[in-house]
Design a binder for these strands. Sequence first.
RNA 1: GUGGCCGUAGCUCAGCCAGGUUAGAGCGCCAGGUUGUGGCCCUGGAGGUCGGGGGUUCAAGUCCCCUCGGCCACCCCA
Length: 426
Amino acid sequence: MSDSTSSPRIEAFKAPVGTRDVLPPESARWQQLIAEFAAQVGRAGYGLVQSPMFEEIGVFNRMGEGTDVVRKEMYDFLDKGDRHLALRPEGTASIARAYIQHRPSTPWKVWYAAPNFRYERPQAGRFRQHHQLGLEALGSLDPDLDVEVISILWDFYASIGLRQVELVLNSMGTAEDRRRYIDDIRSWLVGRIGDLDPADAEKVEAHPMRVLDSKRPITIAAIADAPRITDRLSDDAMIRFERVQAGLVSLGIPFRLEPRLVRGLDYYTHTTFEFVSSALDAAQSTIGGGGRYDGLVESLGGPATPGIGFGSGIERVLLTCDAEGVFEADEQRVDVYVIDTAGGDAGRDLSVELRRAGIAAERSFDGRSMKSQMKSADKSGAALVLIIGGDESESGTVTIRDLRGDTGQETVDRVAVVAVVATRLS
RNA sequence: GUGGCCGUAGCUCAGCCAGGUUAGAGCGCCAGGUUGUGGCCCUGGAGGUCGGGGGUUCAAGUCCCCUCGGCCACCCCA
């Protein structure tokens, strides 16, 4: 505004829309959350899988040609070799592809903590890059595996302190049951299309099941006595669904049957479930969900292989933790803080020696004053501060000061410091 | 993709409605408070493209338009 001679303004870069940086101290919660999850699934025999963040787009198309995730939310692109690739929008398809490629022995039980990408408008609890903790078990039809998978997620939420979480359960039946039901519900809806909210009426032809979990009051009223999939299950599917429920009851895991639970991915069969938080007043209250996908592996060109798994959004879980006031991050703190006002040689070397001995040690840089370094020491959370001033430097000693108690100070020989500190910390 | 609200120091915000000297506060950061000692307190300091661009005006952080971004909702999902 002042003149036109100033150099051109460079707009500072920002993280892309819908993405964000997770920085300390928030990142410490992420570490803890993932570590807790890893520990729990590890106990149940699940191993970590690291798969690519992008795949050939066909891997993901099997989620359902009609789903929004495939139709309009995929980050797809052509690479320099004209391959049509897509950033992974969800975890299961990648795992299924890896299973087909490597043919591990079954049951193949794996977990992941990885980013997913969907091109959506961000809002509370929704990002273009979000992260999921997930788990998949391939190669077994046993409904007790469904119970295992659901119980793991239930116990995980409990272990991090969440209490206001509800498990919602449904069965889609076999692929055949599902197909038949889709036809049934479509013709039922077509007969009442005028009673539906117009926005839902549009879905009847292509995706009749989506109408079932509509949030629009008009539609909800209109479909109150629509046929339920759980009334249409084949005997086999019904027996399995009952076995799943019995298992959950036996383990003391409460759940609510919701015949209208329709998950957004087309590959689900039999057991489907969601974990919903009542502590979240945001529009996105589902913190985790999953189900069986007995036809997915085959549809990706693999051998007929059943599978079940879940994904749970790290951001949403943490949001829920905030809402419930649980799972606070431990503050990162060191054991000792090294202060050197005598040139820095001793401070430089001692801090490394301490770390080599397994002691967490921090220090200042840039030759700050004693007072400044003491302030930093206090903020670091260190229990002890090791001071090397002029006196200590000359006499080859280090002064150890207790910052948290009233032990006072002691001055010890430089060569003995690490051992003395180790003892005092234990 | 549609709609609502909002963009002023690192953070949280005041100032805008009724345009007018060098744009403020708190917190944070840095440095001091007699030269070797933290937390509390006091003093001082650094730090601002008032999101960006254009327009109206003698004059724009304040008014208008566009644009980008953020938040929230729809849609959909973790």
